[in-house]
Design a protein around this nucleic acid. Structure first.
Lengths: 186, 186
DNA sequence: GTCTATAAATAGATAGAC
DNA sequence: GTCTATCTATTTATAGAC
């Protein structure tokens, strides 16, 4: 008795390992314990699997940052909350995050457009928070695009590393990661 | 008159766009202007393309960091030189870097082993530099693995961003990126 | 060095029995 | 809801003519 959620979960893990194009419906079916044709009783196509996983997670990110953006807190506190959200999602959905980062180019049609829209919205929200922080002197007068790129690079790669972090508890990780990203290492 | 270097160059760009599995030999041949079968006069297999591109670049990184590691300079200066090398390679070989980052899992056999060995060597060299910097108080007493991860995340993603950096000249980029990674943004 | 033709394997997806 | 069987298209790679 397969169900859609199980398919999406197993697919996320296997696509992370083999890539979207590299994973065949036969391999996916075998990992679940059915024949490939049975999968089509639960999902309409291979594309739909990628769409659901990526767009669901993209929505999760954009809705969170829009909430943070409207709060009446300092820019630094906003950045800390964004960092914490990335840590939480990286711990909870590492496979799905890997697809969001590395497989989005295999989306097609409206799904690809929707993904790009959400990604742009997320980056624009973060950009505005960084600029606000520069205005209030909470942040140094560095190029906004460089700060945005550097922060997002680390946050988007958390899913690759977070399981190898050893004994650091998640609460301390959030604190120390904020320190690294905001105050530097030197 | 196709040659091997042209194949590798065009392949790097197309694999970056479509992924290794997603790029067919027919698509690659069409982009070059020949039939797929003609490619096999210059390269033995599709796998060999990926092997050459990735292992060449991996060797470039490990040999540089080993040189830096043996120099009689401060840990901070070593880190700055590593950052500069990443900027140079990201400007010169962005497509090849994208494969190193995102397509290495499609390597097979000895090529995969060699890649992982070089990657481990690179990370171990950087880890030792970070630990030395902590010993001399040049770096804050943060978890080494977190510092290593954060630095590498940004450096390994430079190729994605560096063409969108706008008007920042490469010399200033190196300086400001070092400041972001070492001294932080707040 | 490039071509046409083709081999052999595998892909996503559907039809219809149970 | 899962199965077997199959369709159609595409894949990497090779053989042999020019």
């Amino acid at each position: 008795m397969t169900n859609k959620n199980e398919i999406l979960k197993v697919a996320a893990q296997l696509i992370r390992e083999k890539g979207y194009v590299g994973l065949s419906m036969r391999d996916l079916a075998k990992a679940i314990g059915v024949r490939a044709s049975s999968l089509y009783n639960h999902i309409p196509s291979k594309q739909a699997i990628l769409n659901e996983i990526i767009l669901h997670l993209a929505e999760e990110f954009t809705s969170q940052i829009k909430n943070v953006a409207t709060e009446q807190i300092s820019s630094l506190t906003k950045l800390e909350q964004i960092i914490e959200h990335h840590v939480d999602l990286s711990l909870h959905s590492p496979n799905q995050l890997a697809l969001l980062n590395n497989e989005w180019m295999h989306l097609e049609g409206q799904a690809l457009v929707n993904f790009k829209t959400k990604r742009n919205q997320y980056e624009e929200s973060l950009r505005q928070i960084i600029n606000a922080g520069k205005s209030t002197k909470e942040l140094k007068p560095l190029h906004t695009e460089l700060v945005l790129f550097s922060m997002l690079s680390t946050l988007r790669n958390l899913n690759l590393w977070i399981k190898k972090r050893g004994s650091i508890p998640s609460k301390q990780l959030k604190k120390e990661l904020s320190q690294v990203l905001l105050s530097g290492i030197a």
